[in-house]
Amino acid sequence: MRPLKNLSFLVGTLAVAAVMLVVPRMILAAPVPMDTNGVTPMAYAQKIFYFHVPTAWCAYLSVFFCAGGSIAHLMKRSRAGLAIATAAAELVVVFGLCVLVTGPLWGRMQWGRWWDWTDVRLVSTLILWMTFVAYMFVRRYGGPGSEKLASGLALFGAVDAPITYFAVFFWNKLHPQATVVRRGGMAPEMAKAFFLSLAAFTVLYFLLLAIRVRLERARQRLDDAHLAADEAGLLDV
């Protein structure tokens, strides 16, 4: 099994690398949207979009995996579930950070300021991100029993996400700006680059998830071996 697994990781990594080489070219080649006067208000900053939206998608996908793993861990005491939840929570934080950095960069060009409290996605992503930073904090500093605590938090965070979204949405009473991804909102070249980028990030996400889960499972086995060795008195020497 092991050589096969290693091979699949290698193939996966090469695939991601290949896509990551192609996608930037396509993004660069894609046209920049113009308004009716032929002005490009966003200029090249618009291209943040090809990075921002796919990372946001990966972050939300990861919330879903983290909650699923946490349910398996809480209800079935599944250690594989815990490993998935651990890996997914870290990826929420990583991809979420990409979203939270690129969002304000885009906003600076579009709205003229870094942060806009009326943008429901930005605000609710920040709150969700804080929840998963708290997850990592609990896992790191929570001491014994922190796994359950963190699983509970992940579950609450996932259920909280839509409620937060609604609350932030109505908080401003403003509808969020029309999304760039709406039907017919993109030139064909833009759509091609966007969906390829989306696919590339999704593959990258699953590759990172698989690597991190594998690492976590190895760590669990090492812990078990350590405990077994301790019980057998092998560590007393």
Binding site: M130, T131, S146, L149, G157, T164, A167
Partner: peptide, 21 residues
């Protein structure tokens, strides 16, 4: 938990944001 006083704040506040809003 030993660190409960610190952890409670960190865990609770992000979750109860909708209540506050």
């Amino acid at each position: 938990n030993r660190g409960r006083h610190v952890l409670l704040n960190i865990l609770l506040y992000p979750i109860i944001v909708p209540v506050l809003i």
